[in-house]
Nucleic acid binder design. Structure first.
Lengths: 254, 254
DNA sequence: GCCTAGACTATTGTCTACAGTCGCCAAGCT
DNA sequence: AGCTTGGCGACTGTAGACAATAGTCTAGGC
């Protein structure tokens, strides 16, 4: 059991720019953060049952705050709950993967068109700070923290648009993408990869500072680690036509 | 107190096409639906405090399910909760209105590009069914039910894309737009307006069946009732530059 | 008269307990 | 042997009570 790093997608960070977050978070927030980490960390895999009593024991709290956290995660699309039957980590089909990737791309395009060139230097500063946290996590070689910092960096980039609702929608979708990533287990990168990864992100930030939308979009399009799509058809069900066509397109483009 | 009409944005309708929804909904679902209706019906206005004990009394249930429902509504952006200080109906600034309208338009464009011309006739059938419900509500002259049916029709149109996550995101945003609408009180339409309204929607559906994206997009762009934007600057704070520029553009375009 | 400190009230945060429901397994019937 | 049925265990749904915190009002002192 690792010490809790910076929480992912906490409520208090949505739409509140650097306000006083010294208030002790409620147990619901703690539970939601822990659950997110357990899911995107791969300890709970898509399809796994989520039993309340077990979690209360693991998290050291009673059921009511945990249940509220489950509602939050359900709304985020990380778990799916059936009345009187319990909850499971959202199972993914190939069509789901298609939806997540394509919609996320669209959000990125929207955000870039709105946010670049950058108007508010404070937003850019937020990106820089997140990038530094990434670099720090890379040096430490901590996979979980690195993933979270990378996540927050991308959210900050979308935040350049100054569009809180777009940012929130992107945050949700990016979380689901991390859920996708738990499907291939060989994605564990070593320390060297981390450093390279930070380099790619630093280049992206430089392009952003440059202010050329097309360059940023191009970098974003070829930015993600899409190697995990390699033999994904064999691991997933739900092969809709559009999903298969999309997969084809993605592979041709690379 | 009116009888509960068809619930808006119930969990079981998200991504589940016509499965057996005969299971009795949990109290959390009931509470969430009731709260939505109270908010978009204007009984709870933006900025109003939402006190748990009062609501338990009104809804006839205990606090745990109600609190879970509040978490859901918070995630949908209809209420905002501050730890240990309670919850309020999300207060809106002019910038919020700008965000909601612009992002919703983008979602519509995405959905039309994905969903038109229509591939799956079943999805079209869903639109038709919803339109009929609208017409029925219009004949009955029931404002609340009509609003809900109109809401569901628009969601069904977005659903033509076959993109569940896009549909869910749109649903959330459309709910927030209904929240915007509660800001002007003179929007109460009479029965005649309802009929005209249904006519506009029927024309939209015909264009969809025609399969011409541009025509559909054009109709959608001039479809909404934007009269409520008339003197909105005077009622709201938060006049960001982008929001003012957008408002200018919208008014020029009409 | 104004400011500060203390208590009080209202409200939220959390926990424990109980009721209801689902699913499994075994025993009995056909 | 196969199907049905009753019971049992596990889990979720809900209620009520208790604890803690924030806001408010009043009383006292400067």
């Amino acid at each position: 059991m690792t010490n809790p790093p910076a929480p992912v997608a906490d409520r208090h960070q949505v739409g509140v720019q650097e306000s006083q977050i010294v208030l002790p978070p409620s147990l619901v927030d703690v539970a939601a953060g822990q659950l997110r980490r357990m899911i995107i960390g791969g300890q709970l895999l898509p399809g796994d049952r989520v039993v309340e009593n077990q979690l209360t024991q693991q998290l050291g709290m009673s059921r009511p705050p945990l249940r509220e956290a489950l509602r939050v995660l359900e709304r985020e699309g990380l778990i799916r709950s059936l009345p009187r039957k319990g909850a499971i980590v959202t199972p993914l089909t190939l069509h789901d993967v298609y939806e997540i990737f394509t919609l996320r791309d669209e959000f990125e395009v929207l955000a870039v068109n709105l946010g670049i060139p950058v108007r508010d230097p404070q937003r850019l500063e937020r990106c820089r700070a997140r990038l530094e946290l990434m670099a720090e996590a890379a040096r430490a070689g901590d996979q979980a923290v690195f993933t979270e910092c990378s996540f927050e960096f991308h959210v900050a980039v979308i935040g350049l648009s100054g569009h809180q609702r777009l940012e929130a929608a992107y945050r949700t979708l990016q979380l689901q993408m991390l859920l996708c990533m738990t499907l291939n287990h060989r994605a564990r990168a070593d320390k060297e990869d981390f450093v390279q990864n930070v380099g790619r992100h630093r280049r992206l930030l430089e392009l952003i500072e440059g202010g050329d939308r097309d360059l940023v979009l191009h970098e974003l399009a070829h930015h993600g680690d899409r190697t995990f799509l390699d033999d994904i058809e064999s691991t997933l069900d739900g092969h809709s036509d559009v999903a298969l066509a999309w997969l084809e397109r993605v592979r041709e483009g690379e």
